[in-house]
Computed example of a mutant assay.
Amino acid sequence: MNSIETQALSIGYGESLIIDDLNVTIPKGQISVFIGGNGCGKSTLLRSVARLLKPTSGTVIIEGKQITSIQTKELAKKMAVLPQSPIAPEGLTVYQLVKQGRYPHQSIFKQWSADDENKVNHALEATRLTEYKDKAVDQLSGGQRQRAWIAMTLAQDTDIILLDEPTTYLDMTHQIEILDLLFELNEKENRTIVMVLHDLNLACRYAHHIISIKNGKVFAEGKPEDVINAEMVRAVFNMECQVATDPLFGTPMCIPNGKGRCILKQNKYNNAVNA
């Protein structure tokens, strides 16, 4: 069974159509990544799947049900969403932030319980933030702060987690840290994870399923080795490249042709040959 499907989905802002008649399938229990050039509709699609943006036509299906038929609180028990660059109120501690993930499970008849506390503690442990739980979120490093937000989504205890560019503004070390964490959550807890990523090589390393978007439509969809090739990169990103095999992971690795040093190296080679 698939976790998420879109059926003839169209999304726009005003008279501008961003996503046009899109059919996408998100496999259950896997990591799926949306890739594509700037402005192609990746984040728009993710927001619509999260029911943060109403489509102009078509529908989103969550575990066999139309998303519009699911009450907001029930949807929050099925799916957690982490938008781009979220901001916590000044002075809010890590524990207080993570605790907010349990709000969909509270009601007049069900107040804070030992189970809620256990879920929060588990989220802190999984993100390696237990020792920082009393520290203000705005005092954390970029990587720690992103882990705190992910901990909040974990405390929500949903089978599906949506993340819009979770590695944006992070250095290389923190990018790998966050993606390793998400990979562990998928491996150990079978969470369905859907992300927007810009880095093709990281997308290939961590995704089971890649969806390439061009001009609001699916250009290619499937396993990284079936999607990532020089023709796709040329068509979707307007860039020439070589696609090799990652020596550590065996996944596709995109090497941009670029200019500059590449041209300089070629000129040196030509001069040596002609000398």
Rank of each mutant, 00 (worst) to 15 (best):
P104L: 02
M232W: 04
G29D: 04
T245C: 12
M195S: 06
G58A: 11
Q66I: 07
P247C: 08
S141A: 03
L181Q: 03
M1G: 14
L162N: 01
A76C: 11
A203W: 02
L248C: 08
Q96K: 13
H208F: 04
L53Q: 14
I61K: 08
G250W: 11
V273N: 10
H198D: 01
I87R: 11
A123W: 03
Q146N: 06
K54S: 14
P104Q: 05
D171S: 06
S107R: 05
I263E: 04
A203G: 10
M232T: 12
N238F: 12
G216E: 06
A8L: 03
C204Y: 01
L9G: 08
D199S: 11
E15T: 13
T251N: 09
D20M: 08
L17Y: 00
D20K: 14
E90H: 12
P252F: 12
L124D: 00
I228W: 02
L46A: 07
L45E: 05
A235S: 15
H198I: 09
T59Q: 14
Q96G: 07
K73V: 03
I213L: 15
P27V: 06
N229A: 07
Q242S: 13
S57I: 04
N118P: 00
H122D: 12
R261N: 11
L75A: 00
I11M: 03
P247F: 07
F109K: 10
D246N: 15
K28A: 14
M253I: 15
Q144R: 05
E74P: 10
V218C: 06
V49D: 00
L264R: 09
P55M: 10
L92S: 04
E5M: 10
D246E: 12
D115H: 10
N270H: 11
R51T: 12
C262R: 12
M152Y: 12
T93F: 04
R261Q: 14
P166D: 01
K259G: 13
Q242E: 11
S32Q: 03
M1Q: 07
R205I: 10
K65C: 09
S113I: 04
A220K: 15
K259E: 15
K73L: 05
L140R: 04
R102Q: 06
I4M: 09
P224E: 04
N238L: 14
T173V: 09
I255N: 08
Y169T: 07
G41H: 05
Q156Y: 10
A126R: 13
K217G: 13
